[in-house]
């Protein structure tokens, strides 16, 4: 199953200018558990999608909102010359192809 077909929300945003946070939200506990158990949503599997080291990626489950948070360092600090996305609001693209 593709992540994009399982999740209700797949969003990205800065958490401050040095950190990117991606939130995956699911409709119910069943889908949330399914995603949480998937090897595709581990730091080792996610790091190559963003070209960052696996050790810098954190995956945090948040059961009250049926959500999984992915936190990674921004490779360019927000607003530096050459930055592509000052708010970090369009960095979810690499997740859309993820197969759970």
């Amino acid at each position: 199953m593709k992540l994009v077909d399982c999740a209700r929300v797949i969003r990205s945003k800065n958490a401050g200018p040095t950190t990117l946070t991606l939130d995956l939200m699911f409709e119910d506990d069943r889908r949330f558990r399914l995603a949480q158990a998937s090897p595709a949503l581990t730091p080792a599997a996610l790091a190559p999608l963003y070209g960052v080291p696996a050790a810098s990626v954190h995956v945090i489950a948040y059961a009250p909102a049926f959500a999984i948070k992915i936190v990674l360092p921004r490779t360019t600090i927000a607003g530096d010359p050459g930055d592509r996305d000052v708010y970090g609001a369009q960095q979810h693209g690499p997740l859309l192809g993820v197969e759970l």
Binding site: V9, K13, N14, A15, G16, T19, T21, D23, M25, I60, Y62, P64, A65, A67, K69, V71
Partner: peptide, 10 residues
């Protein structure tokens, strides 16, 4: 869900 918003740690 808003507890997650723009937070590195929910």
């Amino acid at each position: 869900a808003h507890s997650l918003y723009e937070q590195a740690d929910p």
